[in-house]
Amino acid sequence: MRNIILEKIVSLFLKVMLIFAIYLLLRGHNNPGGGFIAAIIASTGFVFYAIIYGTKKVEKMLHLSTHQWMGIGLLLVLISTLLPLFFSKEIQTGLWIPSDFPVLGLLSLGTPLLFDTGVFVTVSGVILTIILSIMEVLEWN
């Protein structure tokens, strides 16, 4: 039995949650927020979506499997860690784009942001892998 109103609400909810998560991720360096928090919020959105639409649909939406997302996240983190080596600096030295670059005013772009994005992607992948596995096996969809 499909409930159109619920479906609409949930897909709207997912969009809101994702936007909110990205907002939290980007402001995390200066204000409360950051990769972990954003990841939990984003995956909550997906989970609600999965409850209504089923896990298959979510997996389709993500294009890649949740494993691959975890891997991508780890790769981003690794890149941000190793990138300074190419600028003959020590590992994990923060690299920054000059601050007069006009982005969102408050936001500073640099490897820490890349790192936080990697954390966001990995943790989202982890939580989604766990919850989607449970849902699938226990036939929650």
């Binding site: 995390g28 200066n30 950051g34 941000s80 860690t81 500073s108 790192f115 936080d116 954390v119």
Partner: peptide, 15 residues
């Protein structure tokens, strides 16, 4: 370049 010290520790100082 970060004002949230906890977050800076997480992603930079103790990344």
């Amino acid at each position: 370049h970060g004002r949230n010290i906890v977050n800076v520790i997480l992603v930079d100082f103790r990344a």
